[in-house]
Simulated assay, not measured.
Amino acid sequence: MSYKNFPMVSRVVFGRGCFNQLEDILAPKRINSKAPFIFFVDDVFKGNAWLTSRIPLSYDDKLVYVSTKEEPKTSQIDELVEDIILSYKDRPSGIIGIGGGSVLDIAKAVAIMLNNDGESKDYQGWDLVQNEAVYHVGIPTISGTGAEVSRTTILTGPERKLGINSDFTPFDQVILDPELTKDVPKDQWFYTGMDCYVHCIESLNGTYLNAFSQSYGEKALELCKEIFLEGDTSDEESQDKLMMASWHGGMSIAYSQVGVAHAMSYGLSYLLGIKHGIGNCIVFDHLEDYYPEGVAVFKQMKKKHNISLPQGICANLSDKEFDIMINVALSLEPLWENAIGKNWKKTITKETLKALYLKM
């Protein structure tokens, strides 16, 4: 029996205001004055001096604002990488992502592609990356995705939506400053927090479950229940807890897998461009047959926070469009195996998925 020898983030700093340590953390990693640090920053922070004035730019460092209206695409990664290669003689000293899951995934993917030939779509899948990434740092400004800790970077490619899952994907350094999440809009806070909640439910109810995943998943689930059933969304304690829930939720799937909601949410995202957090919520709302307890608690949380999810998003789709979504979902075989077991193909058919999508 061989066990997964998976990489973890080697350095992490946690605490309110620890973002101010960024300069001290990066300084020893600068290769020379010609090798820049490239900062990818969520464009919601454009004009937000409270955050941007603290980004330590010097020499040829560059700040790039990234729109997160759409999920990251392989073509977008290739353009960003080409731009860096054409703009600088030297490889960057490091890539820093400051934002939500999309921005963190972009930073991870760019760091990988700077040291690997070809196009990023060639690396969508498991363990296809040959060379280690450029030094890269993740700084989440919203909590829940687990992107700060995972070994994948989720990209929408020409053929499918699938991560670059590799040992070279995780960040070398993560800075967890809960203060950076203080201005997240309420619905966004809920959807991204539910991404974490769904990670826990899928991991803890999966066939891949083991004591390692379970210990992280149970802690994250406990924190999610405290935050979303008992806590006050705006208080500092909830911000701190959700940042740790996100970390633990990400760790819980590192050694296991996610399940039905994530597989089907990828289909929605690929065809309709629905963002990951809200996509998970739309799907999970209809998964009583797979996760009865988890869905019941989810509905309680939804009610407590007055969240109304979009309805009828699949009502007017053609058969061809359904097929595209269903094929994307079915291609995520490890997720189905974790959710249902080795014989998942006997029960998870195109008809099963179509009936579920029609409810959404």
Rank of each mutant, 00 (worst) to 15 (best):
162 L>T: 04
149 V>L: 08
155 L>H: 11
109 A>W: 02
17 G>I: 05
86 L>C: 10
12 V>M: 11
209 L>P: 00
345 K>Y: 06
217 G>T: 05
31 I>Y: 15
225 K>D: 13
105 D>F: 00
180 L>I: 03
38 I>K: 11
186 K>S: 06
332 L>V: 08
93 S>E: 10
207 T>F: 02
295 V>G: 13
217 G>R: 08
257 Q>D: 13
262 H>P: 06
168 F>D: 09
154 I>W: 07
288 E>A: 13
308 S>D: 06
91 R>E: 08
130 Q>N: 03
39 F>A: 10
187 D>S: 01
269 S>M: 03
339 A>T: 13
58 S>M: 12
121 K>Q: 02
68 T>H: 13
27 A>M: 15
199 H>M: 13
219 K>T: 12
38 I>R: 08
239 Q>R: 15
283 V>T: 04
279 G>M: 01
185 P>T: 00
320 K>R: 07
121 K>V: 02
32 N>A: 11
125 G>L: 07
224 C>D: 12
104 L>R: 00
208 Y>E: 02
323 D>N: 06
254 A>M: 14
166 S>G: 13
351 E>F: 11
6 F>L: 15
127 D>E: 07
269 S>Y: 00
258 V>P: 02
132 E>S: 06
131 N>R: 10
217 G>F: 04
183 D>L: 01
293 E>P: 08
39 F>M: 08
24 D>C: 05
2 S>T: 06
277 G>W: 05
280 N>W: 07
236 E>K: 13
68 T>D: 15
360 M>A: 00
241 K>Y: 11
193 G>R: 09
230 E>Q: 14
169 T>G: 10
159 E>V: 09
108 K>L: 01
314 C>E: 00
340 I>H: 14
248 H>Q: 14
325 M>L: 05
321 E>N: 05
192 T>G: 09
20 N>M: 10
118 G>V: 03
247 W>K: 06
258 V>D: 02
150 S>Y: 07
235 D>G: 12
200 C>H: 11
207 T>V: 00
197 Y>T: 07
212 F>T: 03
289 D>H: 14
305 H>C: 04
264 M>N: 12
108 K>D: 00
188 Q>W: 04
215 S>G: 05
158 P>C: 05
40 F>D: 01
159 E>M: 05
215 S>K: 08
329 A>G: 01
56 P>K: 10
275 K>F: 02
352 T>M: 15
77 I>F: 00
227 I>C: 15
142 I>N: 10
319 D>R: 01
236 E>Y: 12
328 V>F: 03
211 A>V: 03
195 D>L: 11
192 T>M: 12
142 I>W: 04
230 E>G: 06
19 F>R: 04
250 G>W: 11
254 A>H: 12
9 V>R: 09
126 W>I: 12
311 Q>R: 01
205 N>F: 01
6 F>Q: 14
283 V>Q: 00
297 V>P: 14
356 L>M: 05
17 G>Y: 07
304 K>C: 07
121 K>E: 02
35 A>E: 12
260 V>T: 15
102 S>P: 00
327 N>H: 03
341 G>Q: 14
